[in-house]
């Protein structure tokens, strides 16, 4: 871990790792070591991202993308998709305490936690069932048709 940390710290510097670690903990990772490991994994993905904006901000976005990858895999959701964004919100709402254990568990081992997560995904609106509502004619009595 330390070797990895030093190799990653060279281009990005320790402050970035600390920011990422803090971010992973804000995402609900309570173990600081795991948060650090996830931060390093995030940084490894960083060169894949377009060279736009501040590097630290890109790293934060990369952390979210990593989380989405795991969520998509665990729940079988397409990415990108609104359902995946909703799944991220459900996960971060605290519905699955210690979510890394559920997301990183071997297939089939975290069925209950994933079901809870699936059930907590928000459904803001139902499927559309459109109808037309034509504007009515309202004309004054004195107007000739």
């Amino acid at each position: 871990m330390n070797t990895l940390r030093s190799s990653l710290a060279t281009p990005f510097g320790p402050p970035l790792l600390e920011r990422l670690q803090a971010y992973w903990m804000a995402l609900g990772v309570s173990d600081p070591n795991l948060a650090l490991a996830l931060s390093e994994q995030t940084l490894r993905r960083l060169p894949d991202f377009p060279e736009e904006g501040e590097i630290a901000a890109r790293a934060i976005i990369a952390a979210g993308e990593l989380l989405d990858d795991w969520l998509a895999a665990a729940l079988g959701l397409p990415r990108p998709s609104p359902a995946l964004t909703a799944a991220r919100a459900a996960l971060l709402s605290g519905i699955v305490p210690e979510w890394p254990a559920a997301l990183f568990a071997p297939p089939g081992a975290a069925g209950i936690a994933l079901e809870r997560l699936r059930a907590a995904i928000a459904e803001p609106t139902p499927a559309p069932s459109p109808g037309s509502m034509p504007a009515q004619r309202i004309e004054p009595l004195w107007k000739r048709s």
């Binding site: 402050p15 920011r19 803090a22 971010y23 804000a26 904006g53 501040e54 630290a56 901000a57 890109r58 790293a59 934060i60 976005i61 979210g64």
Partner: peptide, 12 residues
């Protein structure tokens, strides 16, 4: 919105 979120968390 995502960018602002990332900007916030990227600052010391």
């Amino acid at each position: 919105l995502l960018r602002l979120h990332a900007l916030f968390w990227s600052r010391p």
